[in-house]
Computed example of a mutant assay.
Amino acid sequence: MKIGISKISFFVPKYYLSLATLAEARGADPLKYTNGLLQNKMAVAPINQDIVSMAANAASNILTEEDKKDIDLVLFATESGIDHSKAAATNLAQLLNLKSEIRAIELKQACYSATIALYFAKGHILQNPNSKVLVVGSDIARYGLETDGEPTQGAGAVAMLITKKPKILVLENTYAFNTSNIYDFWRPVTMDYALVDGHFSNEQYKAFFKTTFEKYQEKSGLTLADFKAMTFHIPYTKIGLRSLQTIAKLSTHPELFKNFEYSTTYNKEVGNIYTGSLYLSLISLLENGKLKSKDRIGMFSYGSGAVAEFFSGILVPGYKKHLVKDIHKQILKNRQKLTFNAYAKMLTDIPKNDVLVEYEDDQTFQLVEISDYERKYMKKA
Rank of each mutant, 00 (worst) to 15 (best):
A20I: 10
R187C: 10
P166E: 13
L126M: 14
K352C: 05
S9N: 14
A381Q: 13
Y359Q: 14
Q109G: 03
N97K: 14
Y343R: 08
S263Y: 05
D67N: 12
T190S: 12
N272T: 10
N57H: 13
A56Q: 05
G81S: 13
L31Q: 14
K325P: 00
A121P: 07
V307S: 15
T265A: 14
N259Y: 12
T264K: 09
Y112W: 09
T174Q: 10
P235A: 07
L126K: 14
A110C: 11
R375T: 04
F200D: 01
K99C: 03
N267A: 15
T231L: 05
G303M: 04
W186G: 00
I247K: 03
N91Q: 11
P166C: 08
Y112T: 01
K292C: 10
S131Q: 06
E369K: 15
G149M: 11
A248T: 03
L63P: 04
D184C: 02
A117E: 10
D67Q: 01
F310M: 07
I168T: 06
F227W: 06
I105R: 01
L347D: 04
L161V: 14
E360F: 03
M230N: 01
K329P: 00
S100Y: 09
P254H: 12
G303S: 12
S263D: 10
P30F: 04
L95K: 10
T152G: 01
T78Y: 05
R335N: 12
Y15F: 15
V196H: 08
F311K: 02
D67H: 14
P351H: 07
A114R: 04
Y193W: 02
E65G: 00
P129S: 08
P151M: 07
D349P: 06
N35Q: 15
N334L: 09
K132I: 02
N173Y: 00
A157H: 06
F200W: 04
Q204F: 06
R242C: 01
K2A: 13
I297Y: 10
I47H: 05
